[in-house]
Design a protein around this nucleic acid. Structure first.
Length: 420
RNA sequence: GUGGGCGUAGCUCAAUUGGUUAGAGCACUGGACUGUGGCUCCAGGGGUUGGGGGUUCAAGUCCCCUCGCCCACCCCA
């Protein structure tokens, strides 16, 4: 048997209603917040992620699906969307055309990791990005959007929005040095990985999950205490605006992003419902990304929602089922079938979900199928009905039956009554 | 990449210290006065017990290898 590739999963029809629900709610809110959909390719030049995400990040170092195409170009399947969207923004000179710069994208990402609960090699994200504006109220608004999506989907009771500020080009290097000095003093207590991080990306030692490292991290100099005046007041404003936007949140000075392009405000939507994975969504400001990718000096902010994770939470609290037909046409014989097809077709054209039996099975088995599909009405048409030009309609819920004219008009009328 | 756990029917699971033709529930198909679902009853289809090798008179059960899945580390969405 040929099976799917490790870490790649089918999303079966029983599950897609949850995905549709999530995406519909998200799209609705995104639209009302003024975001427009953008669609980016799966494949990009490797260089984009190297420069965008950072060549020393875990994602780029060991998690990318990278290969040489037949033309000899080094390409990679996107491990995240922001770098691609920034590339599209630059390539299409959207900074000159689009006064808002608000985009969203829904699609799969690829990272070569060991799969486990809440973690796959192909996973889906809802990505939200704003280019061109740096403003504390906008930052709060973006988080408000995230909070509203969680709320609308019905999972906000299980999540916490954690916020932090990781400094700018000026103050981060200063803090970085202070942190390096502190970590060096506590070098003995750190795990091997964190000692490596010390050299390459000391901030990430702060969110190491090992006991000892956590202890060191907790008493480490706090980034928020070392922000420059500009960053500090900006962060204070963001927190103030979060209150005005009525977004529940906590400040967590240990939040760090794993991607190099983040600067300033960063945030995570976390939960305890997903095994070892805690982030349902995460994001932050990336004010130098566009410029670093060769574009104009344009700031940005965005976040990504992990759809699998959001869906898992949704499933924990809501039962969604596939749509059930309003009519199931149980036909006895070819003459009946031929008579019903135009009616079924007309109903479907009018948007009424209608099923019809195609195998010439017994009425009993057709009724069983109607029941299994949870059809509201079973419509029985056999020789008698053909003669009279009327169909027997059984209301499967009320267990009552009656007969109506065998015409699309009669069924449409019944369908309309059902809507009311 | 490193650990740990688990692989028996479509699904959830049984199968005494190794011991007859590997069972059950659910699901599926058909039937219970021939044109009526759900409940009940009856019957039926469906498994080279993940794969390979070994030990044994005898292996789902023990040993080895291999593959797969899950969980955790790590990392993150």
């Amino acid at each position: 048997m040929i099976k799917a590739v490790k870490g790649f999963k089918d999303i079966l029809p029983d599950e897609t209603p949850y995905w549709q629900f999530l995406e519909e709610k998200a799209r609705k809110l995104l639209k009302s917040f003024g975001f427009r959909e953008i669609r980016i390719p799966v494949l990009e030049k490797l260089e984009l992620f190297d420069r965008g995400i950072g060549s020393t990040t875990d994602i780029v170092e060991k998690e990318m699906y990278t290969f040489k195409d037949k033309g000899g170009n080094l390409v990679a399947m996107r491990p995240e969307a922001t770098a691609s969207i920034a590339r599209a923004y630059i390539e299409n000179a959207l900074h000159l055309k689009d006064p808002l710069g608000k985009y969203y994208f829904i699609g799969p990402m690829f990272r070569y990791e060991r799969p486990q609960a809440g973690r796959l090699r192909q996973f889906n994200q809802i990505n939200v990005e704003v280019f061109g504006t740096k403003s504390s109220s906008l930052d709060a608004e973006v988080m408000a959007l995230l909070h509203n999506i969680a709320d609308e989907v019905g999972i906000s009771d299980g999540v916490t929005l954690e916020v932090n500020h990781i400094g700018c080009k000026k103050c981060r290097p200063i803090y970085r040095q202070i942190l390096i000095n502190y970590l060096n003093q506590n070098r003995e207590a750190l795990c091997e990985d964190c000692r490596k991080r010390l050299e390459r990306n000391p901030l990430r030692a702060l969110d190491c999950k090992r006991q000892n490292c956590r202890r060191v991290a907790l008493s480490a100099p706090k980034l928020t205490d070392h922000l420059c005046d500009e960053c500090r007041s900006y962060f204070e404003e963001v927190i103030e605006y979060l209150q005005i936007y009525q977004v529940p949140h906590v400040i967590n000075p240990l939040i760090v992003r794993g991607l190099d392009y983040y600067t300033g405000v960063v945030f995570e939507l976390t939960t305890t419902e997903l095994g070892a994975q805690s982030a349902v969504a995460a994001g932050g400001r990336y004010d130098y990304l566009v410029e670093e990718l060769g574009g104009p000096s344009v700031p940005g902010i965005g976040f990504a929602i992990g759809e699998e994770r959001a869906v898992a939470m949704l499933k924990n609290r809501k039962k969604l089922t596939p749509p059930a037909p309003l009519f199931f046409f149980a036909v006895l014989g070819d003459a009946a079938k031929k008579k019903c097809i135009p009616i079924v077709l007309e109903l479907r054209k009018r948007g009424v979900y209608t099923e019809m039996e195609h195998e010439n099975r017994s009425l009993k088995s057709q009724m069983r199928k109607a029941n299994r599909l949870k059809a509201r009405y079973a419509v029985m048409v056999g020789e008698d009905e053909l003669e009279k030009g009327r169909a027997v309609v059984r209301d499967m819920e009320k267990k009552e039956q009656f007969d109506i004219e065998l015409s699309s008009e009669a069924f449409l009328k019944l369908a309309e009554e059902e809507v009311r």
